[in-house]
Design a protein around this nucleic acid. Structure first.
Lengths: 194, 194, 194, 194
DNA sequence: CATGAATGAGAGTTCATTCAT
DNA sequence: GATGAATGAACTCTCATTCAT
C-alpha cells in the first residue's frame, strides 16, 4: 500500500469515526461511510471489508491515544490527590459529553463481538487504568494524603463506578450533579480527614 | 381484543423475550418473532406495530416482576447484613447468567430510544433500588451492624458499581471472582470490624 | 334480506360514498369502508364482495337521484333560456365543488371497468342530458329565443364542453371565471341578438 | 451518472411508458417496471424512487414531443382551414387509438397529484394549444375563410370539446362517428358558408 | 347474521457485495 | 487502485379474504 493509500485509509477512519459517534455502531452502514467519505462504493472495499473491521481499527487507534493521554498526566510534580482529582475531572468531562462520544458505538460493538480477553482493547484499557489508579493510591497512602488498606480493590471499585456512570449516562441519563456526587463520594472515601 | 387474544399477546411477548435474550435488541426483526411464534406475517401486526413496542412492553412487565422480587425479600426477620448479602447474591447470579439475560437488549434499546426521565423504567428501577438499599443501610447502622455516615451516597455507589459490573459483563467480560471481589469490597466498606 | 339488513346496506353505501368522494375510487380499500362503517371485517362481505360492486351500486343510486333533479327543473312555466341558464348554473356549482364530489372516483371507476354500452350509467345519463338539452333548444328556437339550425349537434356540443370542463377541473384546475367564460360562450352561440 | 446510465434511464422510461399505456397509472408497480425492463429489483431504484417520478418524467418528455409535433404543422403554405382540418384529424386519431394511449394514466396521475398551476404540463400544453388555435382562427378570419367574432373564446371552446371527447372516450366510450360529428360541428361553426 | 382473529400474497425499500471497465 | 452500475437477499408493512365461533 502506497503513501497515498495510507492517507486515504486514515481519512476513511477519521470520517467513519464521526459517523459512529453520531449513530452508534449498528446503525452505521457501509453506504453511510461511502457517502460521508465521498468515495466510490467499491472503493471502500479496497480498504475495509465491513463496518466491524473499520470500528475495530478505530477502537485500536483510539486506545493508543487514550493511553498517551492517561500516562501523560503523571510525572509532573503534583500530589496524588491533585492528580486523582485531575483524572476524575477528565472522566467527568467525557461522561457529560453528548456528542463526540464513542461510548454507545463501543458498547454496541462489544455486545456483538465477544472478543478474546487478551485482544479486548477495552479490557486492556480497563486493566491499565486500574493499575494507574492503584499506583496513584499507593503513592497517596505513602505521602499520607490517602487512607486505604486495599489500593487494588479501591482502584477497581472506582473503575466500576465510572463504568456504571458511563452506562447510566447512555441509558437512564445523568446530570452533572449526579457525576459530582459520585466522584465526591469516591474522593471522600480516600482522603484522610483531619 | 378478546380473552383469547390476550393470551396470544402474552405468548408473543414471552416468545419474543427469549429472542431478545439471544440476539439483543437491534438484531431482532419482526420476521424473527413471527417465525418463533409460528404465526403469520400479518398476524403479528394485529398485536404489535414494531419490535420497539414489543420490547417496551417486555421491559414494562419485566420491571413489575423485578419489583415484586426485590420487595419480597425484605420483611423477613433477618439482619440487615443478611439481607444485603442476599440481595448482592441475587445480583451476582444475574450478572453471571450468560443466557436468559435481557441486559444487552435493554442497553441497545435505551441507546436508541432516549426515554423521558419519568417514563424511563430503567431509571425508576434504579432509583427504587437506591431507596431500598439506603433503607437497608440505615437499618444496619442502627443495629450496629454497619458503619456508614452517608447511607444515600453509599447506596448510590453500590448501584453504580453493579451497573458497571453489568456493563463490563457484556463488554470486557467478567469472571465469578471479579464479581466476588467487587461485592466483597462493598460489604467490607460497610461492615463494622470487631 | 330482512328490513334491518336493507337499512344496513343503505348505511354502508352512504358511508362508502363519502369515502369515495374523499379518496377517489382506487385508493379506497375494503378496510377503509369497514372502519368508516364501524362494522366487522367479515360483516362487510355479507353485503358486498369488493369495492367495485359497492361503487357500482352507489353510481346507480346516484344516477337515479340526478335524474330526478334534472327532470324536476323543467315543467315550471319558465322560458327556455331561463331554464338553460338554470341548468348551466347547476353544472357550474357541481364543477366548482371541491369536496362532496364523485367525479374523480367515477372517472377512475370507468377507466378500470369498461362497461357495456347499455349498462353504462354514465352514458345513459349523458344521452338523457343531450335529449333534454335538445328539447330545450328546440323549444327556444320555436319561441324565437334561440337561433340554432342543428339542435342535436348543439346539445351534444354543450355536453362535451361540460365534460371537458369536468375533466379539466380535476386535472389542470379551473377557476370560476373559466367556467363563466365557457358557459357564456355557449349561451351567446344560441341566443338571438337583437 | 455516466453515458451508459442515461441510455438505461431512457430505456426504463420507454418501457415504463408502454406499461402505463396498458395499465393506467395507479395499477403500475415498481415491480411491474422492474420485470418489464428485465432489471433487478434494486436496479430500478438507482434511477427512480417511485412510479410517480417515472410518470412525471414520461409526461415531461411526452410534452416536449407533442410541442414539436404541434408546431411542425404550421408554417407550410396551407390555408387556415386546411391546417385546422389537419389538426383535428390528428386529434381524432389520438382519440380513437385504444392502445398506445397515455390518456387514462395521465388522468389518474393528475387526480392524485394536484400540481401547481405553473408546473402543470397538462395545463401548459392546453394553454399553448389554445394559443395556436386562436392564431389559426384569426388567420382564417383575415383570409375570409372563417367567420368568428371571438377567436379566443372559440379556441377555448374547441379545446374543451376535445377534452370532453377524450374523457368520454375513456369512460362512456366513443365511436368514430361520434368524433366526426363533433369535429364537423366545430368546423361548421367556423366556416363561412357560401 | 355478525364478529374479528388469522392467513398469506405482494408491494416497497435498502444495502452488502461484486465486477466489468 | 478506483469507479459506480448491478444484483438479490432481507425486511417492513398492508390488505383482501376466509372461517371458526
Amino acid at each position: 500500500m502506497g503513501e497515498k493509500s495510507i492517507q486515504k485509509r486514515q481519512f476513511i477512519l477519521e470520517t467513519a469515526k464521526t459517523i459512529f459517534m453520531e449513530k452508534g455502531y449498528k446503525n452505521v452502514t457501509m453506504k453511510d461511510i461511502v457517502e460521508a467519505c465521498n468515495i466510490s462504493r467499491g472503493g471502500l472495499y479496497l480498504y475495509f471489508d465491513n463496518t466491524r473491521d473499520i470500528f475495530a481499527e478505530i477502537l485500536k487507534l483510539e486506545s493508543q491515544e487514550t493511553d498517551d493521554l492517561f500516562s501523560g498526566k503523571i510525572g509532573e510534580n503534583a500530589t496524588a490527590s491533585e492528580i486523582l482529582a485531575l483524572l476524575l475531572k477528565e472522566q467527568k468531562k467525557e461522561l457529560l459529553r453528548k456528542k463526540n462520544n464513542l461510548a454507545v458505538a463501543t458498547y454496541e460493538y462489544f455486545f456483538e463481538n465477544k472478543t478474546a480477553k487478551k485482544d479486548n482493547v477495552l479490557r486492556i484499557r480497563f486493566d491499565e487504568a486500574v493499575s494507574v489508579l492503584e499506583a496513584l493510591i499507593e503513592e497517596g497512602v505513602e505521602t499520607g494524603e490517602f487512607y486505604c488498606d486495599n489500593p487494588k480493590g479501591c482502584a477497581r471499585n472506582i473503575m466500576y463506578v465510572l463504568e456504571g456512570l458511563k452506562a447510566a449516562a447512555n441509558t437512564i441519563g445523568i446530570t452533572e450533579k449526579t457525576v459530582d456526587d459520585e466522584l465526591m463520594y469516591i474522593m471522600q472515601g480516600l482522603i484522610v480527614e483531619e
